[in-house]
Design a protein around this nucleic acid. Structure first.
Lengths: 184, 184
DNA sequence: CCCCCCATGTAATGCGTTACATGATTAT
DNA sequence: ATAATCATGTAACGCATTACATGGGGGG
């Protein structure tokens, strides 16, 4: 499937960048739907270079620090667009350890349950608050921009992440309310 | 982390079962938050047996078909409960190919975008309808049951899956509405 | 001078999928 | 009979994480 390949191509297609730049992207905005470590990125870039989908030029930073600035090739752009326009069937539902634990509700005491759900609620609310803060500061929310820009892509996935977190929080609250009511 | 290990222990803790039974569970109810193939389950059961967390007895089905009926041991139960009560920090956000494509909105034409979002909407709506049908037929929705039963666990994760799908559908609709409005 | 960040890689290990492989039972 | 389902396993491969490993640049 090689999804990472296309994620990297898509980013480099926006602007030439280094492996380090990619790593930052995968730990910031993209982290809401895709994640990769540098230990996965550097080999991937090597592979893409070998496949002729990207090229790099070595840039000197300061005195002698070398960095590789990657650009997409025509072949790379073609591969990326071809992947992008392909309709893929929905993937299997993502795994979720907390839902798994919730499934085993019968093995927990009511106190344990409320502790577990409460902790999860805390975590999720914090996450949600951060996403909402990011949204408030997002340029797209303030100035109305052209729809076919990277900024708009940023905006819609952020919006999606917020809606996803809200649904999770709502679920947790509903479960807790029911557990509390019944345990009286 | 060995999450599969605990998923298996939790299921066998409910009732003794075979590898095949486990496989069915991972493709039905659990599929909404965890998934595993038989090729992963049989080795896992072997490992759990070696660790002394489960035991099995061989049962003959019909004339000569052997199946292994696994039960949890005291050690297994202990390991399971210890995992269950442990608070884990939220995992990294799950990967989502469609969100990744949505992020690269600037590389698509408006027609492509509407086609992609439309297809995804179809798929997600179908999935949601199935979940809602399962919910209508769920025993817990009809008879009010004791809260600390496997049936309740089943119910809350189903509820969670429905809320998750609804949020996804709502996001898709919102994106499509905006894309259509702006493209005039 | 020291710490944080920039910058790039490799090795070992673990988790998961796809494919390979076999055979019995049950329902139509 | 024959197809679907029950039932159990292994092998090869790919994707991802953790740990190992090294060194320069810039700000305080």
């Amino acid at each position: 499937m090689r999804t990472l390949k296309y994620a990297v191509l898509g980013l480099i297609n926006r602007d030439p960048m280094t492996g380090y730049d990619l790593m930052k992207a995968f730990n910031l905005g993209l982290a809401n739907f895709w994640h990769a470590r540098h230990s996965q990125l550097y080999p991937e870039l090597k592979k893409l270079t070998a496949e002729g989908l990207v090229t790099y030029e070595t840039v000197i930073q300061g005195e002698k620090l070398e960095k590789k600035l990657y650009s997409i090739t025509e072949a790379g752009r073609k591969a990326f667009f071809s992947w992008l326009s392909k309709q893929e069937r929905p993937e299997p539902t993502p795994k979720d350890i907390f839902r798994l634990k919730a499934y085993f509700v019968e093995a927990m005491s009511k106190e344990d349950l409320l502790r577990q759900f409460g902790y999860q609620l805390d975590q999720r609310k914090t996450k949600l608050a951060k996403l909402e803060e990011t949204m408030r500061q997002h340029p797209y929310s303030r100035e109305v921009e052209e729809i076919l820009s990277p900024l708009y892509g940023d905006y819609i996935v952020l919006k999606g992440a917020i809606m996803r977190e809200r649904a999770y929080v709502a679920w947790l609250l509903e479960c807790m309310r029911e557990i509390e009511t019944r345990s009286k």
